[in-house]
C-alpha cells in the first residue's frame, strides 16, 4: 500500500521542468556535511531512459510508515511540521525505515551507517536550499493542497485563450 501524502509541506519536483543537473544534491550535501557529495544528499535525482527525470525527497507522510517501522523508536515525526527526526543515538542502521518508505527517500550514510532523511533545512536560514538553487524552479516547497491549486491554475491558463494584460510593460 502506498502511503498517503499529507497536509504537511514537503519538497516536490516537477518532472517536466527537471533537467537532471543534480545541483540540488550538491547544495544539500554541502548544507549537511560541508562537502559536495551526491551520496550524502537527502534529495536524489532519478533518471530512467535518459528523459524521465525527477528528484525525490521525504514527502512527510501522515502516520509515516518509516516511524512505525523503526524497531528502536529512533524515528519521530514532528506533529506541527511533519518532519521526520532520526535520533543517531538510537538508530543502528538496520534500514527497516528504508524498506518502509514508498518513495526511496531515506538513505544510509555509508560512513556512519545510520539513516538520513530530508529535514527541510529547518535550521537553515531561507529554508530548503535545494529549492533556492534549482535553476529551472522544478522544485517547490509545498503541500498537496497547494500543489493541486497550482495545477488547476496552470491548466486553465494553458487551455483558455483570453486577452491577457501585459505582465512586463518593459
Amino acid at each position: 500500500m502506498v502511503a498517503s501524502t499529507s497536509k504537511y509541506k514537503y519538497i516536490v519536483c516537477d518532472p517536466e521542468l527537471c533537467i537532471g543537473c543534480q545541483l540540488c544534491e550538491y547544495i544539500c550535501s554541502y548544507t549537511k556535511t560541508g562537502e559536495f557529495n551526491s551520496y550524502r544528499s537527502r534529495i536524489r535525482t532519478v533518471r530512467v531512459d535518459e528523459v524521465l527525470i525527477t528528484a525525490v525527497s521525504c514527502r512527510t507522510c501522515e502516520d509515516a510508515p518509516c516511524v512505525r517501522a523503526c524497531p528502536r523508536d529512533a524515528l519521530t515525526q514532528d506533529a506541527v511540521t511533519g518532519i521526520i527526526h532520526i535520533d543517531p543515538q538510537k538508530c543502528d542502521g538496520c534500514a527497516w525505515c528504508v524498506e518502509a518508505c514508498d518513495f526511496g527517500a531515506i538513505s544510509i550514510n555509508h560512513e556512519t551507517k545510520l539513516a538520513e532523511i530530508c529535514d527541510q533545512c529547518e535550521d537553515v536560514e531561507g529554508g530548503p536550499q535545494c529549492v533556492l538553487i534549482c535553476p529551472k524552479d522544478a522544485l517547490q516547497y509545498t503541500t498537496p493542497d497547494q500543489r493541486s491549486q497550482r495545477t488547476r491554475k496552470k491548466l486553465i491558463e494553458s487551455s483558455l485563450e483570453f486577452p491577457q494584460k501585459a505582465k512586463d510593460p518593459r
Binding site: 533537467i19 537532471g20 543537473c21 543534480q22 545541483l23 550538491y26 535518459e50 528523459v51 527525470i53 535553476p135 529551472k136
Partner: peptide, 17 residues
C-alpha cells in the same frame, strides 16, 4: 522535441531530446 536535458551541474540544459 520531447524533453530538454542537462549535463551534470549545468543550469542551462541545451540537449534537445
Amino acid at each position: 522535441k520531447v524533453k530538454v536535458i542537462a549535463c551534470a551541474q549545468c543550469p542551462i540544459a541545451c540537449e534537445q531530446m
